[in-house]
Nucleic acid binder design. Structure first.
Length: 559
RNA sequence: UGGGGCGUCGCCAAGCGGUAAGGCACCGGAUUUUGAUUCCGGCAUUCCCAGGUUCGAUCCCUGGCGCCCCAGCCA
């Protein structure tokens, strides 16, 4: 009898490796880590890494650390440390007590550097930045050994100690590992271990004047924390031999392994921190949390749910081949989640008035509308019907195109949760613009979409009673770029910016129940998409809703 | 043309020598007071190409082709 898991997880190469390690007894449990450098805001690509690392730990009964890879104080700030923690928590993951900083290991790393010097495996380099580069050789030519490579252990120890003491200015010396200047792998040509930086550090203050490089810190930190599987992106693959060299040549307490996966690329967006930063600085977007940004702060503000982002990461899988995921995939995950959980409501975005001439001017009816058509347990709410209502301009066409089955003069349409109405005429101003529509309702049509004579009305549109409507601003977002791959080629990615990536509608008419909308509640404005109040700009007296994502629309595609 | 990787449906992705999972997209059709949802059905005789090994190859071998990464005192 086998005792297999009820819900088999999608397989991927990392799970296979872990499965094997657990079965062979190499490890009795796994420890992973998510190691961001606090030099910016996290984006959807980081979400993939977070889901992989925390997800693997969860699925295999291990643990995942949150570790700040803070080895370069010149780029790091407390603000980023805070935002990263917040984003990881928002995504739904918990590192428990396991919050670490690479910088908390600076003393140990320093001692290990001294150890390497004593083993004659590291030396202090006096060559300039330019000279080091020249000596390094090229991809096809071996490098040359530095004249300082043969310094005595004593001199190296003395110089390195003085580097730490702050005796030398920035850039004047570095500590290098003595490996192989002729290695075909560039990262093994005597890599720099430490550089002098008289810069205060966001976590350890001004305790240090020298800081370890990523390569000298990462693997050793993994070993100190007991990480079993150190998972990073593909571009670090060529660093793996160096990662292992340090573990082989230092008295580290454990032997972690590095594995690489393909980073996430999304169509219609740029992911590089540098470019996102530029968009913020140029004012192209309102900030790191602009709802159009692929940052976690941005999609969070827009209204994407953590569950949807997690589902997306699960769905795209993990592999080693460079991939470009279509944004439609992400959007579909958001719809799938919101369709289940979002209560329905009606909102008219581009209002046009419809006067129902045969409805008493002083009458108001209270009608009941289900909050979710497939989930009666979500209850219902009251909406009001009166003589004058708002309908969406897009739902009326004076000269309808073929296939249009919304309102047109002489045509009839069902008002969702209301009556069937017929449009009897249009009132226009001198310029010929439509001022208002006129119509008549069928008192016997509250239920269903059949007319008194048994015909079936094809169109159902949303509406809001003019006397009861709440006015709000609604922001509609589109993709930031109009090209599927703005990052491609040498051309400036900014030329692909979508000039219409945001549309602000300031006179939208919402049903009264929305006036008390909670800031966290996501609604489906029927037929218009999913919306939520902007957590920053929406105020009690001035409602502002963001459109999170549209509904699928098979009609616009046919037009 | 140094080294390291990758190449399975439009986009992802399982597959690990035994005769191509799944998701998204797309195309039908049903249900529907959201042109939404849901539901049913369709969607790779073929796995970059060419040889080879084998009874049998997407999986092994050889040779091509294409793409990505590496020459920061960034991570």
């Amino acid at each position: 009898m086998s005792t297999e898991q009820a819900a088999p997880l999608a397989n991927n190469f990392l799970r296979t490796i872990i499965d094997d390690d657990l079965k062979s007894g190499k490890h009795s449990g796994i420890v992973t880590r998510f190691p961001p450098e606090p030099n910016g805001y996290l984006h959807i690509g980081h979400a993939k890494s977070i889901c992989i690392n925390f997800g693997l730990a969860r699925d295999f009964g291990g643990r995942c650390h949150l570790r700040f890879d803070d080895t370069n104080p010149a780029k790091e700030e407390q603000e980023y440390i805070d935002s990263i923690k917040e984003s990881v928590r928002w995504l739904g993951f918990d590192w428990g007590q396991h919050l670490y900083y690479a910088s908390d290991n600076f003393e140990q790393l320093y001692q290990w550097a001294v150890y390497l010097i004593e083993q004659n495996k590291a030396y202090v380099e006096d060559l300039s930045f330019e000279e080091i580069r020249a000596y390094r050789g090229t991809l096809t030519e071996a490098g040359k050994e530095s004249p300082y490579r043969t310094r005595s252990v004593e001199e190296n120890l003395d110089l390195f100690g003085r580097m730490r003491a702050g005796e030398f200015p920035d850039g004047t010396r570095v500590l290098r590992a003595k490996i192989d200047m002729a290695s075909p792998n560039m990262s093994l040509r005597d890599p720099v271990l430490y550089r002098i930086l008289h810069t205060p550090h966001p976590h350890v203050g001004d305790a240090w004047k020298i800081y370890p490089m990523y390569d000298f810190a990462h693997g050793q930190t993994d070993a100190i924390e007991g990480i079993t599987h150190s998972i990073c992106t593909l571009e670090f693959e060529s660093h793996r031999p160096l990662y292992e060299w340090f573990l082989d040549n230092l008295p580290v307490p454990a032997r972690p392994r590095q594995y690489e996966f393909a980073r996430l690329n999304l169509t219609y967006t740029v992911m590089s921190k540098r470019k996102l930063q530029e968009l913020v600085q140029l004012g192209t977007v309102s900030g790191w949390d602009d709802p159009r940004m692929p940052t976690l702060a941005g999609i969070r503000r827009r209204g994407y749910t953590p569950a949807a982002v997690r589902a997306f990461c699960e769905q795209i899988g993990v592999g080693r081949s460079d991939s470009w995921i279509e944004v439609a995939n992400l959007e579909e995950c958001v719809r799938a989640d919101l369709n289940e959980t979002a209560p329905r409501a009606m909102a008219v975005l581009r209002p046009i008035k419809l006067v129902i001439d045969n409805y008493p001017a002083d009458q108001v009816e209270e009608m009941t509308a289900a909050n979710h058509p497939q989930q009666p347990e979500m209850g219902s709410r009251s909406i009001y019907f009166s003589r004058e209502i708002w309908i969406d301009a897009d739902d009326f066409m004076e000269t309808p195109s073929k296939g249009f089955h919304r309102l047109t003069v002489g045509g009839e349409v069902k008002l969702r949760s209301g009556y069937i109405i017929t449009c009897t005429g249009i009132t226009k101003d001198e310029q010929g613009n439509i001022v208002e529509l006129h119509g008549e309702y069928d008192p016997a049509s509250r239920e269903g979409i059949h007319t008194a004579d048994g015909r079936k009305v094809k169109g159902v549109i949303h509406w809001v009673s003019a006397a009861h409507a709440v006015t709000a601003e609604v922001r509609l977002f589109d993709r930031l770029f109009s090209d599927p791959n703005p990052d491609r080629g040498v051309a400036d990615y900014k030329q692909f910016l979508n000039p219409a990536s945001v549309e602000i509608l300031s006179d939208c008419k919402l049903e009264a129940s929305l006036a008390g909308a909670g800031i966290e509640t996501r609604y489906q404005f029927e037929r218009m998409g999913y919306f939520r109040q902007d957590p920053i700009d929406s105020l009690p007296g001035k409602l502002v809703f963001n459109r999170i994502v549209t509904l699928r629309d098979t009609w616009v595609k046919k037009v």
